[in-house]
């Protein structure tokens, strides 16, 4: 069993529990232990874009230092945490001026021989690069035959591309390759990399509802039966707010939205309790029964 430090983040510990539980169980089935780092703190949720904001880099740096104690990798799954942690690690490593500022704030919190090369890694990168999609498909017990899943690429995992170095920003393929490896049919759709409205669901709820509606509608028109994402906020906008769409958009039909690891776990034949489908607001249970997957 290979063990890596794991940063779950606030959302996965509370409101996106289905993503956390299914990730741990899926990785266990694949021979990996996600070892939660001790006393982690919130990553800050938003990478500070202003050049004169240094204090917001302190919190993510703490978790990176903790991971660096016994590994050169830090695994995370929430796209906001991934975005903040990966960009922070990169900035602090490469920009001497910003690095000095952050370290001045942290004083004795900076370990003496800290590891400068901790790579912040998304869980799907472990599956792609260490296990390999071809090897993954050899291990599946329930292929997602006939299940048409539209991969939705959440902005924060791969933009800005120069800092994230995750995927081609105009033509991301990683989830498409994953769905195919799991035996399903991946449905490409025009709005696959469009913003879901993100945190506008706090301040401008109707604006973000329109963004999410456009995405779901586009996926359905392309023939999808479900969507796939790894971001708790996209999941909230695309899944939990569908009731509002039913109430306000004529002709809207609900469509289930899976978390990344729910669907991998399902095809690996994991116990259905560890996948947390009951936490999805639009239940995928009927669809999965129809396809003989439950």
């Amino acid at each position: 069993m290979i063990s890596y430090p794991y940063f779950p983040g606030c959302a996965l510990s509370t409101k996106a529990k289905a993503l956390d539980i299914s990730a741990r169980e899926t990785m266990k089935a694949l021979g990996y232990e996600l070892k939660e780092i001790e006393d982690w703190t919130c990553c800050g949720a938003v990478f500070p874009l202003a050049e004169d904001e240094h204090i917001r880099l302190v919190s993510p740096m703490r978790s990176i230092f903790k991971a660096g104690k016994d590994s050169d990798k830090l695994i995370t799954l929430c796209s906001a945490c991934f975005n903040v942690l990966r960009r922070t690690q990169r900035l602090v490593k490469e920009n001497k001026v910003r690095r000095d500022r952050v370290f001045n704030y942290m004083e004795e919190e900076v370990p003496e021989n800290f590891n400068d090369n901790v790579k912040v890694v998304h869980l799907i990168e472990i599956i792609r690069d260490e296990i390999g999609f071809d090897k993954l498909s050899e291990r599946i017990k329930k292929p997602l035959t006939d299940l048409k899943v539209a991969p939705f690429y959440d902005c924060l995992t791969y933009r800005p591309p120069k800092e994230m170095e995750f995927e081609d920003p105009e033509n991301p393929k990683i989830y498409t390759n994953l769905i195919t490896a799991l035996g399903g049919i991946s449905i490409d759709f025009p709005f696959r990399s469009e913003c879901c409205g993100a945190h506008l669901s706090v301040s401008d709820r109707s604006a973000s509802l329109d963004c999410s509606y456009r995405i779901l509608n586009s996926a359905r028109l392309a023939g999808a039966e479900a969507l796939l994402t790894s971001c708790p906020l996209c999941h909230y906008n695309l899944d939990a707010r569908q009731q509002e769409m039913i109430d306000s958009k004529v002709g809207f039909k609900p469509i289930p939205v899976f978390y990344l690891t729910q669907i991998i776990g399902l095809s690996l034949g994991l116990d259905v309790e560890s996948l947390g489908f009951e936490k999805n607001k639009v239940s995928p249970v009927n669809l999965l029964k129809e396809k003989g997957l439950l």
């Binding site: 409101k15 706090v202 909230y236």
Partner: peptide
């Protein structure tokens, strides 16, 4: 109901 990241981002 909303994930914390939205609330924090909204705080900004």
């Amino acid at each position: 109901e909303m994930p914390q990241q939205a609330i924090i981002a909204g705080y900004r």
